[in-house]
Design a protein around this nucleic acid. Structure first.
Lengths: 234, 234, 234, 234
DNA sequence: CATGAATGAGGCTTCATTCAT
DNA sequence: TATGAATGAAGCCTCATTCAT
């Protein structure tokens, strides 16, 4: 939690500082990120950072909180009940994610880099909990769909929830591995993560959805009935 | 590549050294791992390490190679053609992986930690390539299944390959996130990663396979139509 | 270039540090010089050096720059056009050099040791360029004298320039080889390089000048012909 | 002085070892040269070197002695009395030096690199003495010429001797600074120092001789007499 | 509230030399 | 006589954090 010293800062300065650190943590992992470097860029005293935050971790957690809050604003309004099935809802999440990315490039980069950041032992505990929460959220979604008879009931919710979470992550990773997006490069050029790549992102989302439907949706056997009644009736 | 000095070492000593470093790299990431610490544990001179290996990276790559080689011995004999479908083949891979884990706990821990290790910038390039190769291998498997008419043709091989790769990873991760396994703790107690957890691992594999079937397998319903109805009714 | 941290240091401290390093580099070559040793002498933390300078090379270049600047102040005001011939100008350079030596013993020692320092591979490139510039400066001087009809035109400027440069160096070296001066010892006793040796230095300079006149000056015999004989006889 | 162990070695092996170390010391300075590296190249045990020589210095001095001996064989037969003046003798020294270079490239490279090697503190004492001897030899030559009435008597022999020595050195250095020769490169290509550069070397020698004549030769004033008798007779 | 110099542990790496076999 | 593994001091450099001003 930042100290009052930081919160009382003139907004301009507070944002300047926040952005500089976001940029650093968007490019390097927690352990690699160097306060020294950022402080030099900012032209502020090293000691100041310790007037604002308890330590490196405190600062880092603040940044996570801020970015999560901003992204949440984009996503919170998307309600499952406004969509006919889970997958159109799922797709919408990515669409809004794109909007968030375009309007908050630095925050988007920061969160993006976060995903590949689960190791640094200094923060392992914290990350584990964060991930647990995220996974739990997906489990809950799955639970709802199962209850509604839309997702298959024959696989534990835990497993489906985790795979669903992983599918979300995979979409980003695949784009990165195949070179469709290049965060390291785009942040260098002051571009957002998905700048000019919205189409390919959504296309990939659709491909994954096609696969996921087969995996998660309740088997349409009854409808198959309607298709091949002959064999059955005979 | 280790220097002859290392290879000529008395086997007992060579193994003692290898194991000590495996242990370190199984617990810490490449950049965090400290040669100094291990050397102190071993009670050997720091300089000795540099008689054995060119540098830290050389040592690390040797460990990767050794572990991969050992694991390969367990897996290489599993041939796709010996199994009726991809998924029984897939399952067998995990079964043998379990055996490898039980019989080579340290190597298994090392490889396990490797997965969560993609960041260390000193070795990012090397890791990226390793992962690319792994992903490519999965793509190739998918390609084969598609050719054989067993996997669906309406989703790009690249996407299916990547998801398949991710499913493999997810199984391990889910067990870790849910607390079913706890590598950090088990290595402390000189236990293998999956010690006493073989059942739950395979059960989870089966769950994922059930999901994956729906996602990847060619939907047989329509084709069943053309092939049999007539014959059935007659 | 030193970091602001160093420049903002209290002058007393800054000088103390500068002098300690000057002393080290005046006695040892770049590669042999040990920051660790100096830091211990100074009683400051090793890390401090890296708050002041980027690295060892940065520190070294700073020292070169400082000493060169100081020496330049002594020499810059000497203009060729104020002297009837090159050699009286040349002699004056050494006289002022002596003054610089007396008033800045440590800097003088440092620069003196620099000359014998062309090897250290870490800085070979930098040194090669420095020497090239110095040689070029001598070439230019020679060129001017040739243009003015004062130096002989029948030997390439390159060769004369290089020899002239070497003569300057030789004067110092001869005194050292013959034991007239002993930098290693004099720095130990906090004496300047040429302390109490000004006379012998200038005497040696004069000897070299006498030799150099024969080598470089245009032979006046023929020209004496056209100018005077007639006028003299009349 | 090498130990008997070395001298008793089969000649082929002894030469192989000698050459490998010559090569190393021809490329690196004494302090930079690494026994470890050479021993690896040779494929012999590190300990062997210490069976052959007391230590690094002992080995180095042996190499100096060997090379000096070989070069001496080329030069010793050149007698001053066989030449009309010092400078034709001087020129011959370089010609034979060229022959030595062509027929013993490695030794030539080694000796060449030696010149730029006066710093390494580990061997400073030894080098100082070597140089003193060389300088003394030149002094003696100068002394003889002065006695013979061929060199000017109005400048101390010490100074003329030293400059003469320096001129010899300068010739080599100038060729290197101007890029006419490139030892570092030529040794890489298994070429001798002056391979294909004999002409430019001798040409440079001639230029230096032209300068040196003016500097060292007794003033020819009397001969000027014969040129401008008019003014004198009137 | 800001400053920024000081800290010092810890990191990897190199090398000549020794000594038991 | 040859081997080659072991040594360990010394080197440069990084970084989060502290604290006096």
């Amino acid at each position: 939690m930042p100290k009052p010293t930081f919160l009382n800062l003139e907004e301009r300065k507070r944002k300047r500082i926040t952005y500089a650190f976001l940029r650093e943590f968007a490019v390097r992992s927690y352990d690699e990120a160097s306060l020294t470097v950022v402080v030099k860029q900012l032209g502020i005293a090293k000691g100041s950072v310790y007037q604002y935050f308890d330590d490196k971790l405190d600062l880092f957690l603040y940044l996570i909180g801020e970015c999560a809050r901003v992204k949440q604003d984009y996503i919170a309004s998307i309600k499952r009940e406004d969509y006919p099935d889970y997958w159109s809802y799922f797709r919408e999440l990515f669409k809004r994610g794109c909007q968030f990315d375009a309007e908050n490039p630095l925050q988007s980069h920061f969160l993006h880099n976060l995903t590949q950041n689960l190791n640094s032992p200094s923060i392992k505990n914290i990350f584990d909990e964060m991930m647990s929460q995220t996974v739990a959220a997906f489990e809950q979604m799955v639970e709802q769909e199962v209850q509604a008879g839309l997702f298959r009931p024959d696989v534990p919710v835990k497993t489906m929830g985790f795979l669903l979470y992983k599918i979300g992550v995979s979409i980003q990773e695949q784009l990165e591995v195949t070179g469709a997006i290049n965060p390291a490069e785009s942040i260098e050029n002051n571009q957002s993560v998905y700048q000019g790549k919205k189409e390919i992102l959504l296309q990939t989302v659709d491909e994954y959805i096609r696969l996921a439907r087969g995996a998660f949706d309740r088997n349409e056997a009854p409808s198959a009935f309607g298709i091949s009644p002959v064999g059955e009736t005979s």
